[in-house]
């Protein structure tokens, strides 16, 4: 099955009566297995709401989201928790690492909660830390390492259980430019070498240029789509900037 995730006509309204806000308005698209897809848009365009619905953190007002044959909009809360545990990985701007655990333990925890065996946990943990370059700080606590290292640890944790989809919400938002670049290269490597499917929400054109496909969101609707194809990253970045200049970029916030 090529279409891993199908988003069909989803809508999300907030408020009631005369004060209804449409955060996401009849959005449909598909995410293919092994794809690295980005969603761009100004603040308030609905991109985080879209990610929250995809990640089962928020519910849809209308429409369906299919992961393979499973319609997650039909699942109970208990089933959603299990679904999240088995299929999804998260990377957030604020890292969301547990401050009482070391970096290694943060990665281990998702696997112990999954009920995996000790040998498997140890093997996978070492493999991920080596891949993401955080082996040397494995025994450090989050407050003892840099933002970039924290975020790479969050990535390793997100990938630990071989998720069907890795969801990233502004993952470079709190990083300096060098760490941001390293992280994005890590995403590319995860996508290419581990065939991880990545869904990234960002308002930063530089970050978006690492994606294979970008959806542009405005006022809750998809208004444009860019596919990188065989283009160089720099060329793709220019294309993104062109689209952004058409929409007025970040200024749409204030309107």
């Amino acid at each position: 099955m090529q279409d891993t995730i199908r988003i069909c006509d989803i809508e999300k309204y907030y408020g009631n009566g005369a004060h209804v806000t449409k955060a996401v308005d009849r959005v449909s698209f598909t995410v293919n297995q092994g794809e690295f897809i980005g969603v761009m848009g100004a603040s308030g365009s609905g991109k985080t709401t879209l990610l929250n619905m995809l990640s089962t953190i928020d519910t849809v007002t209308a429409g369906h989201i299919f992961y393979g044959d499973i319609d997650i909009t039909e699942l109970s809360e208990e089933q959603l928790s299990d679904f999240r545990k088995d299929n999804l990985g998260f990377v957030f701007q604020e890292y969301n690492l547990l401050d009482t655990l070391t970096l290694e333990e943060n990665i281990m925890l998702v696997m112990t909660l999954h009920g995996r065996k000790r040998e498997e946990i140890e093997k996978r943990c070492s493999e991920l830390m080596r891949l993401l370059g955080i082996e040397e700080v494995r025994n450090q606590f989050p407050y003892q390492v840099s933002g970039g290292q924290k975020q790479r640890c969050a990535c390793a944790r997100a990938l630990a259980n071989h998720p069907k989809l890795l969801l990233a919400d502004e993952p470079t938002g709190a990083l300096d430019s060098k760490s941001a670049q390293t992280l994005l290269e890590t995403f590319t490597s995860m996508n290419e070498r581990l065939a991880a499917t990545i869904f990234m929400v960002t308002h930063d054109a530089f970050s978006a240029s690492y994606c294979k496909r970008i959806l542009f969101l405005k006022d809750g609707k998809i208004f444009h789509e860019l596919i990188r194809g065989s283009k160089e990253r720099r060329e793709f970045l220019n294309e993104i900037l062109d689209v952004l200049s058409l929409t007025g970029g970040e200024r749409s916030d204030d309107e």
């Binding site: 809360e77 928790s81 925890l109």
Partner: peptide, 16 residues
């Protein structure tokens, strides 16, 4: 509270 939010996102149900 964020610790439990993280656990919830890792797939821990409310019951758990």
């Amino acid at each position: 509270g964020f610790r439990y939010r993280v656990l919830s996102r890792m797939g821990c149900s409310r019951q758990k």
